[in-house]
Design a protein around this nucleic acid. Structure first.
Lengths: 233, 233
DNA sequence: CGGGAGATTGACTGATCTCAACCCGGGTGG
DNA sequence: CCACCCGGGTTGAGATCAGTCAATCTCCCG
């Protein structure tokens, strides 16, 4: 992690009309220390680790972070991805618990940090901010519930189809309509909740059936309808 | 659903020092209409259904409610249980979405309802209340994440062992140390995320191995250590 | 007593996992 | 420059966990 940020860049990131911080008053805004700009993380670098104490919020300015739990045998389970505009670490901050997930950059990323005490202060004194946070938590909760049901009830094939659709919706496509996000087969497996080899086999199948196109890690969805059908979405 | 409650009983339920509503001021308290007391639900009755609009919070005074999602093929996936003191329906209320789960009484229950607008008002104007709600959401989120990882990575056997431990921790035991909560084999399967027959076979195994004792739906954990080991907890 | 729900058991099947071998491309140290 | 190594990616074979189907049993209820 490296700090190259400038103060204006830091301030700018909170001004975004879609930022969680958009409800802060001018005065509250100025409470955020701007002694240093955003932090830079390279692909592979860890933002925070499972079991460590988190001292505040991470607001993602740029890049993609994978958030995962490590299972009993060391296998990762990817819970979600954070991308531009998302916040991380608020669960632990709010509930005063140790982090229950690890956050790792899978693309070079730029992150603003806001101290937990400050966030708690905002929650207590700014109803709109509290409501916003609560809504974010509730949205995540809804997604988690869907996830649970899917993993518990669907086959690996169904889940993989669904994950591909989700990735397509959640992340940008490049000029050739390939998914921008670059995941190893193992990471895909860790989203779906299966073995790497299973993902590989199913991807080949999907490819053979002309549902997707693959160039190394780059994947393009060709027949979204069919994937919807396969995934029972 | 039937309304037999008295006003005092209704008021009383918010006074509990462990209630979410404990942070409300006297004035806020009085904003809650007390024109009717708590509602009574019999075992099997539905509090709210997936896909319906929820108009507020359900605060559980007494009883047990199972909260589940219905999967593609109609199979239930139990997400969690609500018991005395828990709230239900806040996700949908806060995020203004339709209910994504169904809540059904598995024991005769007694529930207080508070309108959503009021709850939102409290969140906006009472920082402690907002913080409390946020913490509840965060706790659930943490549990959901654990759940995801478990279902994705553990075997059915491991998960069943874990579920038994959880049930023992979460619910009271009767005088004979049997779990108070009465679940069908199918409901157990719908927590674990497996087939009913698998649960039956594994329960018999656990019983043969003297880890648990079974009398119909009543289950007693005998060897908690061993279950811990089996469940990799 | 008949009916129905839930519980149990057995047999079978098949989706997935595991293990092992092999490939490929990039980076590196000699 | 080249051999080697290492992290992914692929493929095949075999093992197995767990789901499905079907028959039976046990209560409990009207």
């Amino acid at each position: 992690m490296e700090n190259k940020g400038s103060v204006p860049a830091f301030n700018e990131c909170f001004r975004d009309t879609k930022s969680v911080f958009r409800h802060l008053t001018k005065e509250e805004f100025e409470m955020i220390p701007i002694d240093h700009g955003p932090d830079f993380y390279k692909r592979g670098e860890i933002v925070y680790s499972e079991g460590s104490r988190i001292h505040g919020f991470y607001y993602l300015l740029k890049g993609i972070i994978k958030i995962f739990k490590t299972g009993f045998d060391g296998k990762e389970q990817i819970i979600r991805f954070a991308k531009k505009g998302d916040i991380m670490g608020f669960r632990s901050t709010i509930s005063n618990e140790l982090a229950c997930t690890t956050a790792k950059a899978i693309e070079d990323s730029q992150i603003c940090f806001v101290h937990g005490d400050l966030v708690k202060h905002f929650v207590k004194n700014n109803g709109d901010f509290a409501t916003e946070l609560l809504q974010i938590a509730c949205r995540e909760l809804g997604e988690a519930n869907d996830y649970i049901t899917d993993i518990a009830q669907k086959t690996v094939r169904e889940r993989l189809a669904e994950v591909l659709i989700h990735l397509k919706m959640e992340f940008d496509l490049d000029r050739d309509n390939f998914l921008q996000i670059s995941l190893t087969r193992e990471e895909l497996a860790n989203i779906v909740g299966t073995a790497t080899e299973s993902v590989i086999r199913l991807l080949s199948e999907f490819k053979a059936d002309k549902l997707i196109e693959i160039h190394g890690r780059r994947i393009r969805v060709i027949d979204e309808k069919a994937l919807h059908r396969i995934g029972n979405i």
